[in-house]
Computed example of a mutant assay.
Amino acid sequence: MTRRIIHIDESPIRFERWRRYLPSWLQRFLPSGGGNVEDHHGKGMFGFSVFLLSESLVFVSFIFTYVALRLTHSKNWLPPGVSGVELSNFVIINTVVLLSSSFVIQPAENALKDGRLNRFRWLWLMAIAMGSYFLIGQLIEWSKLDFGLTTGLLGATFFLLTGFHSLHVLAGVILQIIMLMRSFIRGNYNKGHFGVSAATLFWHFVDIVWVFLFSLLYLW
């Protein structure tokens, strides 16, 4: 008979006191006090949420830098002969595909929770395809621009923001591929699916960041 090991909650912040007052969707990201060692999903999601918070601070610093440079160099923002970034139908379609993927990956996670493995696989594969479509579209857009990374502040900031975001999209796609492959291991998700939940949360983060970047780079 396997002895159950119990965690002792030694956190200086007693989340349990006010955790119950939060909506259910937010409770999953906060650690619960103590519990069995096998019940690590909540603590894992809390740790991953802190990681995403640190990533968001990096994006915020880049965005503030872009805004500051754009405001202080408004007269010479566009180098001679450069038309700048244009909001084309191609960019709009690419954006719609990426943002729509959040409405695909979340039902995929929900399907796994309900034990519908085949539905999870198909929806998860669709999310992978949509993320890959965005990456390919981003590469095509870069190739058609009339400026490059070294073309003044415009080129440096645009490629820094979109390149750093695309790196996160690529990481998200790789995570999704790994989670999909693990679904074919018999009984892999019987004891939990923290990896799928973390990959889903990461993907929502990537989509939210793109909303800000899209508004900043294409609508301003």
Results as ranks from 00 to 15, higher is better:
Thr2Phe: 15
Ile8Val: 14
Asp9Gly: 11
Glu10Leu: 11
Ser11Tyr: 10
Ser11Leu: 10
Phe15Asp: 06
Phe15Tyr: 11
Arg17Ile: 09
Tyr21Ile: 03
Pro23Phe: 10
Gly35His: 04
Asn36Tyr: 15
Gly42His: 15
Gly42Arg: 12
Met45Pro: 00
Gly47Glu: 11
Phe48Arg: 05
Phe51Val: 06
Ser54Cys: 13
Val60His: 05
Val60Arg: 00
Phe62Asn: 01
Thr65Gln: 00
Val67His: 00
Ala68Leu: 03
Leu78Ser: 09
Val91Ile: 15
Ile93Ser: 14
Ile93Tyr: 09
Pro107Arg: 03
Glu109Val: 04
Leu112Phe: 05
Leu112Met: 06
Leu117Trp: 00
Phe120Pro: 00
Tyr133Ala: 10
Leu135Gly: 07
Gly137Lys: 08
Trp142Val: 03
Asp146Ala: 14
Asp146Arg: 13
Leu149Gln: 12
Phe159Tyr: 13
Ser166Tyr: 15
Ser166Gly: 13
His168Asn: 12
Val169Asn: 06
Ala171Trp: 14
Gly172Ala: 04
Ile174Gly: 09
Ile178Gln: 08
Ile178Trp: 11
Leu180Glu: 02
Ser183Glu: 03
Ile185Phe: 02
Gly187Ala: 04
Tyr189Val: 02
Gly192Ala: 10
Gly192Val: 06
Gly192Ser: 12
His193Lys: 09
Trp203Leu: 15
Trp203Ile: 15
Phe205His: 13
Val209Met: 10
Val209Gly: 01
Tyr218Thr: 06
